[in-house]
Design a protein around this nucleic acid. Structure first.
Length: 344
DNA sequence: AAGCCGGGGGT
DNA sequence: ACCCCAGGCTT
């Protein structure tokens, strides 16, 4: 890309986005709180997944004061199923900081926004550019791919040097005014035309500026680390109409899971399933065991009617729904065993 | 610089 | 089975 061609690039990009850009709910507001919510949710999470969570979140926590006043368990419950739960804890903490240290007024500079927990360079600039129209660059998955192809970048985009090239170009392309629209257009182009698999180059409004020789082979990335197998054992303990659950202290911190079982019994598990977890493939096995004499401090009996009200990670949530359904069906048929091998 | 953190969608 | 995703934090 030649610097003198940047104005032409911007005009072509803008004309395209006016006709083909996406209409997304967080673009229909300038409320920095709502935009921050969307940006945190969208970290490593696809737009289609976020949509329903975003609407429900703003219904439950319509403003920063409501979120700051909410309980940690309510916040985690609203995030349930989205993954990367530290994001929810950070967003909650950020709301408290804004209320307690900024008197409820959202900070307007990217520097101040970036001091909030869970907010890095991308998210700070995104909120500043979309909420306040500040002329700041953004580089995330869509724009990184697009810019790497424009540059025919032969560096890995997840390397320090590669990142420097991307942020540098993103900065150079910025207009003085209406940067929010410009940045949205870059993302849309990456998401709709300059796609990961086979980019739709014939439909690209800026193809004349692109130097990629083999665009489908870009961007370069570090090869993924290999998957490791894990097996995790848990207990299914029912008493009257309740189930014993345990609040996790490490992975899924603060969420409720089946109690961990150090020594699995020889009997067949009631439930088995598999789920991916970062670079692991976990076999989840749940055994029927007897109620313990005492209860650990992080455990509690939860009524079956109330399990939907507490935050559980997706694999345990799915297992619980399956076990309850099997249990209900089993009691109707008056059987006592409901072994379920859901091995996928 | 590398590892860690979830879960679902698309192919 | 893979790869991908509006990243950030910790080591």
């Amino acid at each position: 890309m030649i610097i003198s061609s940047f104005p032409k690039f911007r005009r072509a990009l803008l004309a395209w986005s006016a006709a083909h850009g996406r209409d997304l709910p967080w673009r229909r507001t300038r409320d920095p709180y709502a935009i921050l919510v969307s940006e945190i949710m969208l970290q490593q999470t696809q737009v289609a997944t976020v949509l329903s969570y975003y609407r429900e979140w703003l219904r439950r926590f319509p403003d920063v004061r409501t979120l700051a006043a909410a309980s940690a368990s309510d916040v985690l419950h609203a995030w349930q199923g989205l993954g990367y739960y530290a994001r929810a804890r950070n967003l909650h903490a950020a709301a408290k900081i804004i209320v307690e240290q900024h008197r409820g007024t959202f900070p307007t500079s990217a520097e101040e926004i970036r001091k909030l927990p869970g907010v890095g360079r991308y998210t700070a600039n995104a909120v500043a550019t979309f909420a306040f129209d500040h002329s700041l660059p953004i580089v995330e998955a869509n724009t990184a791919r697009l810019l790497a192809r424009l540059l025919n970048l032969q560096l890995r985009i997840d390397s320090t040097a590669g990142q420097q090239h991307l942020w540098s170009l993103a900065t150079g392309l910025l207009p003085r005014h209406n940067a929010g629209t410009h940045n949205s257009a870059l993302m849309d182009l990456g998401a709709l035309i300059c796609t990961p698999g086979q980019p739709n180059c014939p439909a690209c409004p800026v193809r004349e500026f692109c130097t990629a020789v083999h665009p489908a082979k870009l961007p370069l990335k570090k090869p993924r680390t290999e998957l490791k197998q894990l097996t995790e054992h848990h207990s299914y303990i029912r008493r009257n109409g309740s189930i014993l659950l345990e609040q996790s202290t490490d992975r899924w911190r603060g969420m409720w899971i089946f109690p961990r079982l150090a020594n699995p019994p020889a009997a067949a598990p009631l439930h088995q399933s598999h789920f991916p977890f970062t670079h692991h493939r976990v076999a989840l096995r749940i055994f029927k065991t007897k109620a313990p004499r005492g209860m650990a401090a992080n455990q509690k009996w939860t009524k079956v009617e109330e399990v939907e009200q507490i935050a559980m990670p997706s694999p345990h949530r799915r297992a619980l729904r399956e076990l309850l359904a099997a249990s209900a069906a089993g009691s109707c048929r008056n059987t006592s065993s409901y072994v379920n091998f859901n091995t996928r």
